[in-house]
C-alpha cells in the first residue's frame, strides 16, 4: 500500500509498504531516517520514540497505515523543531544520504562540541546530552531526546522525580542514567537562563 505523511516538516511518500510494517520500519528502511532506533520493537524501550501529531509515541507500535496524513517529528528533525519553537526560522536537517553514511568525525570537530561554542545546528537538549556525558553507545539517545524535549516543552522546570517519570519509558543500558539526569537538568537550566 502507499502511505503519505509529513516527517520533520517535509511531505513523504512510501510505496509498496507491507500492511504489517511499523512506522519505525518505514522511517528507517524506506525513508532513510534511521535515527529512530529498533532496540526492542515491543514498546518496552522507547528507543524508537517519535512525536506523532505532537505526542511522543513508540513508532514500533504504530502501523505504517496509521501514520497516513499525520505529522511526525523524529530525532533528525529535533533541532529544527526546537528552533521553530524558539521562534527561529533557518531550516536545516539531515539529508537522507548523509544519514546513511557513517564517517566518524575527527576530534577536530570534537572541540566544536564543547559547551563554549555550541554547534548552531543542535537543539539545546542535544548539546546538553553531549556536554553532560549522557551519550555512550548512543542507541537510546534519539528516543530519550525526543521524550525529554517534549517533557521540557510541557514542564520547563521539572523536579528530578518529574524527569524520571517522563523518561521511565526509555531504557538505557550504558550510563546508569545519572548523566542523562544531568543533561536534562542542564538543558532546563540553560533554557531558564535564555528565557
Amino acid at each position: 500500500m502507499r502511505v503519505n505523511f509529513t516527517v520533520n516538516g517535509r511531505p513523504q511518500q512510501a510505496d509498496d509498504v507491507w500492511e504489517g510494517e511499523s512506522l519505525l520500519y518505514v522511517l528507517r528502511e524506506r525513508l532513510g531516517l534511521p535515527g529512530s532506533k529498533n532496540a526492542c520493537e515491543q514498546g518496552e524501550c522507547g528507543s524508537c520514540t517519535v512525536r506523532l501529531d505532537g505526542v511522543p509515541v513508540c513508532s514500533c507500535l504504530v502501523a505504517a497505515g496509521q501514520a497516513e496524513g499525520r505529522e511526525i517529528v523524529t530525532v533528525e528533525g529535533l533541532a529544527e523543531h526546537a528552533r521553530q519553537r524558539a521562534g527561529g526560522e533557518d531550516a536545516c536537517g539531515t539529508s537522507l544520504d548523509e544519514a546513511r553514511r557513517w564517517s566518524p568525525r575527527g576530534p577536530g570537530s570534537q572541540s566544536d562540541e564543547g559547551s563554549t561554542s555550541p554547534r548552531a545546528t543542535l537543539a539545546p537538549l542535544q548539546q546538553a546530552f553531549i556536554d553532560a556525558g549522557a551519550v555512550q553507545c548512543g542507541f537510546c539517545t534519539p528516543g530519550l531526546l525526543v521524550a525529554a524535549d517534549e517533557m521540557l516543552e510541557r514542564n520547563p522546570n521539572p523536579t528530578d522525580a518529574d524527569i524520571r517519570e517522563a523518561l521511565s519509558g526509555n531504557l538505557c543500558r550504558c550510563t546508569g542514567y545519572e548523566k542523562i539526569m544531568d543533561a536534562v537538568r542542564l538543558a532546563a537550566a540553560r533554557q531558564g537562563e535564555e528565557a
Binding site: 535515527g35 539531515t94 546513511r100 566518524p104 568525525r105 570534537q110 543542535l122 553531549i130 548512543g138 534519539p142
Partner: peptide, 14 residues
C-alpha cells in the same frame, strides 16, 4: 567530549 557525540544526538551515527 565524544568525537561521535554530535552524530549520536542527531541520529546520523550509523
Amino acid at each position: 567530549l565524544r568525537p561521535d557525540g554530535t552524530l549520536k544526538v542527531t541520529g546520523e551515527f550509523a
